[in-house]
Computed example of a mutant assay.
Amino acid sequence: MGFFKNLSNKPTPKEVAKDRLRLILIHDRGDIAPEVIEKIREEILEVISKYIDIQVEDVEISVNKSDDDEGENTSALIANIPIKGIRGR
């Protein structure tokens, strides 16, 4: 039975929960609504997928806050996108 489970493109409950938790953590760190982060993620993946094959299930996008030298709060959008291959080669 496990063989047929792997053929399904539907995410497992574990993957859905992991994605939701990741979005909550991103929101808490960056004061950006989870819906906005998800939209950013979708659009980034759509554009990148035109040029390279990526491992969508392993993509991590986060917002990190830090203080700079002048004491100002700065934020950075960080994307970790595993690449399987380049298109058009």
Rank of each mutant, 00 (worst) to 15 (best):
F3D: 09
F4H: 11
N9W: 15
N9F: 15
K10A: 14
K10G: 05
K10P: 07
P11V: 08
P11S: 10
T12C: 09
T12A: 10
P13R: 06
P13T: 02
P13W: 10
K14F: 15
E15C: 10
V16Y: 12
A17C: 06
A17N: 10
K18E: 15
K18I: 07
K18P: 07
K18M: 12
K18C: 09
D19W: 09
R20D: 14
R22G: 04
L23S: 03
L23H: 02
I24T: 08
I26Y: 00
I26L: 05
D31Y: 11
D31M: 12
D31N: 15
I32S: 02
A33M: 09
P34I: 02
V36F: 07
V36C: 05
I37H: 00
I37R: 01
K39H: 14
I40G: 02
I40V: 14
R41H: 07
R41Y: 08
E42D: 14
E42R: 06
I44H: 02
L45S: 01
E46V: 00
E46K: 10
I52S: 06
I54Y: 12
Q55Y: 14
Q55C: 06
E57L: 12
E57N: 11
E57F: 12
D58M: 10
D58R: 13
V59Y: 13
I61W: 14
V63H: 05
V63D: 00
N64K: 10
N64P: 11
K65M: 05
K65Y: 02
K65L: 02
S66H: 15
S66Q: 13
S66N: 12
G71V: 01
G71Y: 09
E72W: 05
N73R: 09
S75K: 03
L77W: 00
A79T: 01
K84S: 09
I86W: 13
